[in-house]
Design a protein around this nucleic acid. Sequence first.
DNA 1: CGAGTTATTGACTCCCCTCAAATGATGTGG
DNA 2: CCACATCATTTGAGGGGAGTCAATAACTCG
Lengths: 260, 260
Amino acid sequence: MTSSPQTSAFAHPGGAAYAPKADVDVMRCLVCDIRNRSLCNSMDEEGLAALAHSSRQLLLPPGTTIVEEGEPALAFFNVTRGTVKLFKSLPDGRRQITGFADAGQFLGLSTAQTYSFGAETVDNVRLCRFLRPQLETLLSDYPTFERRLLAAVTDKLAEAQEQMLLLGRKTAREKVATFLLDRMKAFHQTANRRQEAENLASVPMTRVDIADYLGLTIETVSRTISAFRRSLLIASAENHRIRILSVATLLNIASGQKAD
Amino acid sequence: MTSSPQTSAFAHPGGAAYAPKADVDVMRCLVCDIRNRSLCNSMDEEGLAALAHSSRQLLLPPGTTIVEEGEPALAFFNVTRGTVKLFKSLPDGRRQITGFADAGQFLGLSTAQTYSFGAETVDNVRLCRFLRPQLETLLSDYPTFERRLLAAVTDKLAEAQEQMLLLGRKTAREKVATFLLDRMKAFHQTANRRQEAENLASVPMTRVDIADYLGLTIETVSRTISAFRRSLLIASAENHRIRILSVATLLNIASGQKAD
DNA sequence: CGAGTTATTGACTCCCCTCAAATGATGTGG
DNA sequence: CCACATCATTTGAGGGGAGTCAATAACTCG
């Protein structure tokens, strides 16, 4: 079901995936371009230095495994560029993508000894890795950081509930409309220049990933997107982008009104 | 889609739903019979007194609305007896139950100003209500409580991911098998005498609720349960209970093996 | 016991899945 | 830069699992 080069976020040092040297690293969080949109916005200057000290930065190519279902839960990650997919699988290979983590989002939290989900890069991804003991130290030393994380997990839970509504009760058409609008929102939040992102959705993932996210098959996803294109609700754009031509109509469809 | 008497957890004092007088209340958390299985197990004696002081106990009949989708998020709840259903709805009335909170579980956490979900009692429910400012004080004053809540939300998120796998990728048969096993586990965790609970599942909710939880119709749920009964995988028991006759087979079905 | 609610069962339909083939994109080496 | 292999996407034809509609049966509780 998956494919792609199988690098790992735990590959031994020396690999291209690793971080610059330590003295540069102290500043890393201070100058991070998406800091304001992430957990790290709870930190003062001292805290940012502690964050930089507690984490390592990884640069990973598309298709890299970040965490594997059932493996020991050793680390926590903060995505600072690109998109990561999180998923769970059944023994026979059926897979459900439970979410996409874009820049500013975290992943890898677990109270169990092992991860109950897998995570893999979708495109070129930059992330900060916190080993568990270091994360725990941070949480204890910086109550505002812990509070911020609690809020972030709470938000993720609300997102998950929204996705359950989609998976359990929406039609294929409604699912795809919701997805496109969500990707538009995600692009708005991570794009550097806002105007350029107007009505654009970033869709770096394949049809397989979209299908596994929406609980559909790739054929149904493809057919539905084609239908939207024929109805002039959307249009293709360069670079894995889709332009939303009628946000209002798509919103209607996504929320279950018959509208066309 | 819902029915039932429309009481509210915010009904004015004096209603039957309200708590005993304050001097008894100081001891409430100390003597709480399910304390060890809830968030409150992170508290020492002083903390338990603070919890009791910060919360009010509510006793609610079946079908009572606890929180309403879109209403201001004023409170946080800890279920200490019975079962609560959490759900989200589409404008046309389609509903997805995102989870059942049994004794020991919390509900009502929100970072937004309003609740993004509704909650309603399934059977007779006892719960502790914390108004938001009081909860925040508790979190600040008792770091172990905050850490425990973070862990609890993290667990809920893992549960939600498991449910997404179910909703998106499992067949009706697999969904119902998973549900029955989950209800057996829930009963084990909340039952006072363990032996009595052996292989019993507590199913206090209606077919409508089960269907809205599994992303099915009531007819499909009913047919599937009937098929399991005919295959002697389960049998009815008194008091909204179902006896699991073959846990192993049901486990196989739940995880997607063909087994029958 | 009887009225209303909830659950079961049956007959039929349809949305989405499956299987299959064609088309389009991407990259590599000659 | 093109030929070709590989992979991803689109489109079509047909089938099946779960939904819809409808009737009956089994609870629940005055």
